[in-house]
Amino acid sequence: MKCCETIEELRSTLQVWRCSHPDGSIGFVPTMGFLHEGHASLIRRSAEENQLTVVSIFVNPLQFGPNEDFERYPRDPERDTRLAEEAGADILFMPSVKEMYPKPVVTKVMISGLTDKLCGASRPGHFDGVGTVVSKLFNLVQPDAAYFGQKDAQQVAVIERMVEDLNIPVTIVACPIVREADGLAMSSRNVYLTPEERAQAVVLSHSLQRAEAWFDEPDLTVGEIRRRIAEHISSSSPLAEIDYTDILSYPDLENPSQDVPIGDLPGSSRYIAALAVKFGATRLIDNRIYTVKGR
């Protein structure tokens, strides 16, 4: 595996590879590091589907708000390097903030509509930071396909729309959420949880699992399912502080009427139940996508 820390080194490495593999495909996995099995599953899939896999590790300051955890976001570059190589990465790009943003950023990707709800509502400017860094990375790597985890479902929807709107020639591949044995979605931030918080955090996946049965009850309204999810979290976990629970169409992220019975929604359409919950200072997200059957 080739490790690159500068843009010049990355570009020259890719140029050499393209010259010797003119018909080869490039897969790309952008990450913020502190890799876990969820990231590894993306790298392995890219390696299976492409001749070359590029992984980036960059904690992007543009997507963190002033009171968020940029400085304390977990970092372990040596471990990340080992895990990326074991999973099948061919090139690892680990730039510094100064390398990615040598000057104050005056040009950004501004994203609206899809970003005024869920995480975007409580993290203003977050997805502009995501769109900006992902577009920069796409320009640098020029991959054929890019792999993202469905745990950040809003991010996947935003990036898919950005690629469509800006005619970026890359296929976005959304991969299933990877979970711990007890159901907790894998996240780099799980390391922040105390043992008691960790034990209670499984309520996120449990509530979404319960919602699957509720989506099969045609007379339940969207608002009632949303209320039941929040109630299950609050009653099951005294440490949980709910940021949001929501049910939206997917991937358009539009609000259905809260009074509409599930059975009256368009059949075969997809809806996402998404939630963000804090345990102490740690904010966790999870989601599940359901296909509405109709009556």
Rank of each mutant, 00 (worst) to 15 (best):
G129C: 03
K98W: 04
V158C: 11
M110Q: 14
Q258P: 07
V141N: 01
G280R: 07
D116K: 13
R270W: 11
I229M: 04
G33V: 01
T107G: 14
S237T: 12
F70R: 03
A185C: 09
L42T: 06
I172A: 11
V292D: 02
K2E: 14
E5D: 11
I159A: 03
E48T: 13
Y101C: 05
G183W: 06
C3H: 13
R82C: 09
V173A: 11
D165H: 13
E180P: 02
G183H: 09
F279N: 06
R161Q: 15
T132C: 05
R45S: 10
D243Y: 08
K117W: 06
A157H: 07
L140K: 04
K103Y: 13
P95I: 00
M186S: 08
G183F: 08
V106K: 14
V173D: 09
S268A: 15
Q51F: 07
R179K: 09
S205G: 15
D259T: 12
D216G: 14
L220M: 15
M100A: 08
R226S: 12
G267Q: 15
H21V: 06
R189P: 02
K98N: 10
P95Q: 02
H126N: 05
P256Y: 05
S56L: 05
E37F: 12
I172N: 10
T6N: 09
I247S: 01
P124C: 04
A153N: 07
T245S: 09
I7A: 01
R210T: 14
V158Q: 07
D286R: 02
S187M: 04
L114D: 05
I26T: 11
V54G: 01
I285R: 02
Y271C: 05
N50D: 09
T291H: 04
V54S: 00
P195E: 10
K103S: 15
K103R: 14
Q154W: 05
R189S: 03
E196L: 13
A121S: 12
S187V: 07
K293I: 09
L114R: 08
E197G: 08
S249V: 06
R75H: 01
V178T: 12
R79K: 13
I159C: 04
T171C: 13
E49A: 12
S122P: 00
F127M: 06
G120L: 05
P95S: 07
I172Y: 11
R123V: 02
Q142T: 11
S122G: 08
I159N: 00
F93A: 00
L35N: 01
V55K: 00
S12G: 05
R72Y: 01
E197I: 07
P266E: 11
E224N: 11
V203F: 09
G33M: 02
M186G: 06
I242K: 08
C4S: 06
A181V: 11
T221N: 10
Y290P: 00
L204H: 08
C119F: 01
S112N: 14
G125T: 02
C119K: 00
F64Q: 01
V292N: 10
D219W: 12
A185Y: 03
Y101Q: 04
I168C: 11
C119Y: 00
